[in-house]
Write a protein that binds this DNA or RNA. Structure first.
Length: 553
RNA sequence: GUCCCAGUAGCUCAGUGGAUAGAGCGGCUGCCUUCUAAGCAGAUGGUCGCGGGUUCGAAUCCCGCCUGGGGCACCA
């Protein structure tokens, strides 16, 4: 249980006692009793419960506040409870208790910040899942960063997390890729060939065709034409997947499972799913195609599962995929991170999940909004088909993975953003990322200095940490578990970089005002404890965000 | 046409029912013989897109409108 819950529990407990005592009328208790006030003059926590209860209790908010405050004990973590107009109760944390938490952080070590909000629950986060028909571009990076940070935070909250990439390794687009590659391969061999009309025609396809020709010669020409296209195509797809994996690794994004779409068919999950939908009366035949009757489940329109050609749609695969996630693999929760161009799929996928007898609220879909790329003040149109793209690889070479991650992470997923390359490159010189990393480097520097001077601070007395800067730093440090829980609660990881920035401000201010290593041995030891605790905090935040925590800068 | 997202400081964005709306960057003023100045301290900067409504209280919730973006295929 994190600190805010602890204080909220005290309010509920006090309210219960006041009601049992008949000091306050017995009425239902509203939710959200305690918050962090934005103005620090109002204490560490505030409750607006009296304002919320005034109507149902038929009393003035101030009278409720006064009465309720009497029932709240000032001991342990709370040193003061104050009533403020028009009906707030403000709580102040006890300096002694704050000081002692430094020892608690030290004993928690790298587990500091972890909570138990998701204990015993299996959650899957599926992200990126880009077709292996081209390199990753800047828009994909946003989903990649979101997914990887969300996964890390979920794990910190005690969830058993599985990070998954859904690989579309069959179907129309793959066929088209095969044909496109065969064409550029032929061209590389000096033959006449045309990339199909809707095919993939970027420079990367030309390069790949050349590479294939150099590595394999005319080998694929000698096969029957279809066999050659497929054989070459498979090698090409493998090549694209390797490239995607490399780019993601550079961005520090990893997966536990690479799930093959084809396996849904070879392992019969597709057949099982279609049968379940048929048995449930969710299917109908129309114009030679098989439709999912989603209109009966409140959707705008029905959706085709099997085309009149007999070929299943992407949506059919998706139905089988979600059946597999929930029913076969038994995830308690599933989060899909999709691009804005998939917005229209949310309703029907949720509908089909419900039709398969699964609680549709277990499926959470996060939409990463569009990233418009700007360069030299111009918006660059991104299209994989025409090959007019800024690849993730190029982006990482220019901006660097840490700055790139921060840039995407600090914005909420549902806000569209302009990624101004010029600005991002410029900012990489003087940028919030360095502000955070510099804090870690400074902390590491102090600890290095202490070691060189043989300072052993194990016996340091944390009660000597009494300046406003020290206490402010401790206060901010202790917010981490709350941040972790609130990210899990809202599924919005963008709170983490903002919190880390505030923590860095508290630290830099402390660094400026409180010299750590001095002739005062006792104070030095106490401050070294705070420095080590802070280093643990920064290291955890940076690692959750997938960023480097440098020892020196 | 319809559904979804966004509109907050010069710029990029937080804040989504509470007290005087915040941060970073840019611009302005100070601060390096001391563990890293990639830093600190301070000042300046806002009709929270517009208009109604609900509420003790609205940037936050409801309705309408304006602007920008996206979704509405037997594509993925």
């Amino acid at each position: 249980m994190h600190l805010r819950d602890l204080v909220a529990a005290r309010v509920v407990e006090a309210l219960t006692r006041a009601q049992a005592d008949q000091s306050l009328p017995t009425v239902p208790v509203p939710a959200g009793l305690v918050e962090r006030p934005q103005n620090t003059d109002h204490g560490d926590f505030a409750s607006s419960a009296p304002l919320k209860l005034a109507r149902t209790m038929r009393m003035s908010p101030m009278a409720i506040a006064e009465k309720l405050a009497e029932f709240i004990d000032t001991d342990g973590e709370i040193s003061a409870v104050d009533v403020a107009a028009p009906g707030f109760i403000n709580f102040t944390l006890a300096p002694e208790w704050l000081q002692e938490q430094v020892d608690q952080v030290l004993s928690a070590g790298n587990a500091f910040g972890s909570t138990e909000a998701g204990k015993g629950q299996k959650i899957q986060v599926e992200y990126v899942s880009v077709n292996p028909t081209g390199p990753l571009h800047i828009g994909h990076a946003r989903g990649a960063v979101l997914g990887s940070v969300l996964s890390s935070v979920l794990a910190a909250a005690g969830y058993e997390v599985s990070r998954e990439y859904y690989l579309n390794d069959a179907g129309n687009q793959i066929d088209l890729f095969h044909q496109s590659l065969f064409a550029t391969y032929l061209q590389a061999l000096g033959k006449d060939a045309e990339v199909p009309d809707n095919g993939y025609r970027g420079q990367y396809m030309v390069d790949l065709g050349k590479e294939m020709a150099e590595a394999h010669g005319s080998k694929f020409l000698d096969m029957l034409s279809d066999e050659g296209v497929v054989a070459l195509g498979k090698i090409g797809v493998e090549h694209m997947i390797e490239g995607i994996k490399n780019d993601l690794a550079t961005l520090n994004v990893e997966f536990d499972v690479w799930f093959s779409e084809t396996s849904l068919y070879t392992d019969k999950y597709y057949d099982t799913t279609m049968k379940m939908l048929a048995d449930g009366g969710h299917l109908t035949q129309r114009e030679g195609a098989t439709w999912f009757v989603s209109t009966e489940l409140g959707e705008d329109k029905d959706n085709v599962l099997i085309k009149s050609t007999g070929v299943p749609t992407y949506f059919a695969s998706d139905a089988a995929y979600h059946y597999n996630k929930f029913t076969v693999r038994g995830f308690d929760k599933v989060t899909n991170i999709w691009g804005a161009d998939h917005m229209g799929h949310i309703g029907r996928v949720k509908a089909v999940v419900g039709a398969l007898g699964i609680d549709r609220d277990k499926l959470n879909i996060i939409i990463g909004q569009m990233v418009a790329l700007k360069r030299g003040g111009e918006t660059v149109k991104v299209s994989k088909r025409t090959g007019d793209i800024i690849t993730l690889k190029e982006l990482l070479e220019e901006v660097g993975p840490d700055a790139c991650r921060y840039f995407f992470l600090a914005r909420s997923a549902d806000a569209q953003m302009d990624f101004d390359m010029d600005l991002a490159i410029k900012e990489s010189q003087d940028n919030p990322v360095y502000y955070l990393q510099y804090a870690h480097a400074r902390l590491a520097g102090i600890l290095r200095n202490a070691k060189e001077n043989d300072k052993d601070f194990a016996q340091g007395d944390v009660h000597l940490l009494s300046t406003p800067e020290e206490l402010t730093l401790i206060r901010h440090l202790l917010m981490l578990p709350e941040i972790v829980d609130s990210i899990v609660d809202t599924m919005e990881p963008h709170h983490l970089p903002h919190y880390t920035l505030e923590l860095a401000t508290a630290f830099h201010s402390f660094y400026d005002r409180c010299r750590v290593i001095t002739d005062d041995e006792a104070l030095t030891s106490a401050r070294l404890k705070l420095v080590e605790a802070s280093r643990i905090g920064f290291s955890r935040c940076l690692s959750l965000m997938g960023m480097n925590a440098p020892e020196k800068m």
